[in-house]
Design a protein around this nucleic acid. Sequence first.
DNA 1: CTGAAAGCGCTTACAG
DNA 2: CTGAAAGCGCTTACAG
Lengths: 339, 339
Amino acid sequence: MSLGAPGRERPTLESVASRAGVSRATASRVVNGSPTVAPHIREAVLRAVSDLGYVPNQAARSLVTQRTDSIALVLTESAGRVFSDDPFFPTIVQGVSQVLDAAGKQLVLMMVNSAASHDRVEQYAIGGHVDGVMVASMHGADPLPGTLARRGIPVVVNGRPLGGTTVPYVDVANADGARLAVRHLVGSGRRRIATIAGPQDMVGGVDRLSGYRAELRDSDRRSIIAIGDFTRESGTEAMRQLLADDPSLDAVFVASDLMAEGAMRALRQAGRRVPDDVAVVGFDDTEIARYTEPPLTTVRQPIMDIGRTMARQLLRLAGGETIERATLLPTELVVRESA
Amino acid sequence: MSLGAPGRERPTLESVASRAGVSRATASRVVNGSPTVAPHIREAVLRAVSDLGYVPNQAARSLVTQRTDSIALVLTESAGRVFSDDPFFPTIVQGVSQVLDAAGKQLVLMMVNSAASHDRVEQYAIGGHVDGVMVASMHGADPLPGTLARRGIPVVVNGRPLGGTTVPYVDVANADGARLAVRHLVGSGRRRIATIAGPQDMVGGVDRLSGYRAELRDSDRRSIIAIGDFTRESGTEAMRQLLADDPSLDAVFVASDLMAEGAMRALRQAGRRVPDDVAVVGFDDTEIARYTEPPLTTVRQPIMDIGRTMARQLLRLAGGETIERATLLPTELVVRESA
DNA sequence: CTGAAAGCGCTTACAG
DNA sequence: CTGAAAGCGCTTACAG
């Protein structure tokens, strides 16, 4: 395959057609794999395509097809938090990629933090750059999903939206998982069970806390609560605070594995043995859980499946299907040595 | 602002124009901020835009302008490695974002791992979805940048490309930095100076190793080398191996802070004190360096600046300017307590 | 300062 | 199975 002068005049369908001695329509059919083309014509066109190094102009194509074959995944966090220790995002991205790759769609990752970038992403999607958008890690009542959906853009979000929106979402049984954890602690005879909750502007933070509360209430125990932000550091801090608040606590349910690791550090520094003095249960079942000392009992949530499911639902939606408003993925308790 | 039926018929410039009682051309001028429009006309158009919730169709627009105002940043790593502990990527992304945000360009992040995704990204760029692409974290002699450049797509990469390509790049003085580190160790009287190098299919890995070698040669010492892959774990492993190879070593230059942290763990486990028994110098000066015990002496590379510079150079290139083939950013030694 | 018209590069009924 | 033609939604000389 020879290319023209570097960077000069990209070839158009027109030039492919004329080189192959056919009409633009026929060239287009070949390029798009239409079966109704005579074999020798097809070959001539294909040869012209490769001689010229032709690649269709996407703007022109999507102007008529009204499709782009690209899907956006919006992460509403700063780069610093998105790309952090926490394997949550990478795993979501991986799950999404798998499904999109298989469907021949291009994944476009966008980060939103500033109001300006929020606006730009909105314009990007409304402007028709993508066929649909997934939004992960929402804080508070993010208006973005609703805005996009109202514009007719297929949207699926991760986590039941806080606030009034009715966009479809994929979530896990957060409250159930928390109950599982607390029930396990109660069942093994723990008396004073604290929790380190996640950020209360995120649905995962809220729902795991309410699950904890509900289960404690059912077993007639009082709650002791500290709030973290899903980082390891905040886990350490929160644990210290809990210990100061009530030195007699003998168990803690932590809303993420990373925070649990941080909490275990605080416990060690305070001279408490895990699980002998204080039992610890995490949430996520990420790889970290197998590397803590002792290995962490935790609530497994299928993060990769969240990604896969979001992508699949979005693809269905973009394909014109009607999808359920909520898809709930199960959580389960994985017992190791920390509780 | 009222919206039509949800998801129905997006408004076009045509509808804006007719509602405002002007021609499509004039409506276009207002939308694009042309100054040559009478104030009362401008207002009428703006009102129509907001009444209708009009957003320009990007495909149509870029079909005629030949621009998209989007720029891709391609990360040639799996999601797992891109979003890992290593703050390298997030920092690059942040730097790039700053510059692109200020220029009103949308950043599109793409991950490349499989051959399929490699192809898809190529088609995406050649298909005209973006005005330019940055490639970070290249392994081996990646053909992607060259391919894109030959197609006339503005390309800037991070790190001097291995292999024959002549695409413009932004890099840091890797070898110089390594020499600085080794010279510091020599200067403080260390005799047996080992190194943990980075992956040898990445230019950072190669150049830091050759800097180490060159400086040792100048000071008449023999080299002792182990290779890691920039992860913490590989640093631990490599350090163990070095210790086994030569128990008498009294210093080690490690090609990344993360690996240095891993190496310090191995030293601790082997009962060696840092810096008393073994001096350790890292590379990066990421936040980690201030949190190790003892704090890490390291070679600072301005990661955020790499991102900023890549973006700036790409913007210039896309703007039709000619840019230097290489932009080299300086490294400097930051002395803390580990050496 | 404004409008009529051409044209960006494709796809897709519609005929044949 | 193939081609002529319309049209996707914009921008931008060119006149006036």
